[in-house]
């Protein structure tokens, strides 16, 4: 009914818009409305300018990790070290260790001797510079009933002395699948599988759509819902570009088998923390390695094998 002037009369609504007969009252009102709207819009987005000011042009324009030249990579690592110093007050060393030829990592876990003490999860938390507030970790340990491997009956929140007689414990972290659903779904190739088998994320390329988090069957991926908060003294200064450097808000992250350690020849932090030695890590291409011995001599299984993800994280029981 109110539209009478505009459309009910067909073309008749054009009256004052561009009549050319000087400024009509309606034109003035429209201009005032538009100005008011623009002002309100500017006010609404004002906090963004502050946020954008924190974002350096170098960071904004940074290329994909795999397209950086060695010089550019050096500059990027330096910038990240500077940013960490500024934002967290800690001197750190960020490296981008390349994969080694003839090395393909594998991990196995002996469920018969895991006692569920969560030392591995805690070591991960500290090693990988996780947000202290949310106590994030890439490892979740499930308490399962003997006689069942059904996670639906499992409990990740147990808080009583372990191990309980009728229970066993299953730590779950990234399975570093050889057919990783998280990599396929990423719209921008921000996550990929390295030649040594590790699925990594370029934290500076990820757009934060969380499709990979939906795709992962193992709840292995984590999102930075806010920028991590870590006291300077708690920051682990031995950092890797693709692994444990302090992440930004709004990007995905995941377990990398502690790339910054393992590509240096060292054991992952979760393995070193394990008091019982339930964890076996090594180079699957080395026939003499411990992991190869486990694969050849234990009846290992992988989680959700039917999904065809081909994990390189294996579980086994003794005898």
């Amino acid at each position: 009914m109110s539209e009478q002037g505009s459309c009910g009369s067909g073309c008749g609504c054009s009256g004052d818009g561009g009549g050319g007969g000087g400024l009509s009252r309606r034109t003035v009102l429209k201009a005032a409305g538009a100005t008011l709207g623009a002002a309100a819009f500017a006010h609404a987005v004002a906090p963004l300018t502050e946020w954008a000011a924190d974002l350096s042009m170098d960071e904004f324009l940074q290329k994909h990790y795999r397209e950086l030249t060695p010089d550019q990579l050096t500059q990027v690592l330096e910038r990240i070290e500077n940013d960490t110093r500024e934002q967290y007050g800690r001197e750190v060393n960020v490296r981008a260790l390349p994969p080694q030829e003839g090395v393909s990592f594998g991990y196995a876990l002996n469920l018969s001797i895991c006692v569920g003490c969560r030392r591995c999860a805690e070591a991960c938390h500290e090693e990988n510079n996780h947000d202290r507030d949310s106590h994030q970790s890439y490892i979740r340990v499930f308490e399962l009933s003997k006689g069942s491997i059904d996670f639906a009956k499992g409990d990740p929140s147990y808080d009583h002395p372990v191990p309980q007689d009728d229970k066993y414990y299953m730590p779950v972290q990234c399975q570093q699948c050889d057919n990783p659903p998280c990599v396929s779904v990423c719209p921008v190739e921000a996550t990929w599988k390295e030649p040594d088998g590790i699925v990594v994320v370029d934290y500076n390329w990820c757009i934060g759509c969380r499709y990979c988090e939906a795709a992962c069957p193992y709840h292995a991926r984590r999102f930075n819902w806010k920028a991590p908060e870590i006291p300077a003294e708690d920051i682990n200064p031995d950092q890797g570009y693709l692994s444990n450097r302090v992440r930004q808000a709004g990007v995905m992250e995941k377990c990398t088998f502690c790339l910054h350690r393992t590509r240096d020849g060292r054991m992952p932090a979760c393995l070193e923390a394990c008091p019982t030695g339930a964890r076996v890590f090594g180079n699957m291409l080395d026939p003499d390695s411990e992991i190869r011995w486990v694969l050849a001599n234990k009846r290992v299984f992988v989680l959700k094998e039917e999904l065809g993800t081909r994990p390189r994280f294996f579980y086994f029981f003794d005898e």
Partner: peptide, 27 residues
């Protein structure tokens, strides 16, 4: 509004960024 890094939206623009087509259903 659902993406965590709207400033990196350009990563999705074919030619400019890396467009994971045809693998990713999102592309």
């Amino acid at each position: 509004v659902d993406i965590g890094r709207p400033d990196r939206f350009w990563h999705m623009i074919p030619g400019l960024g890396k467009f994971n087509w045809p693998i990713s259903m999102l592309t």
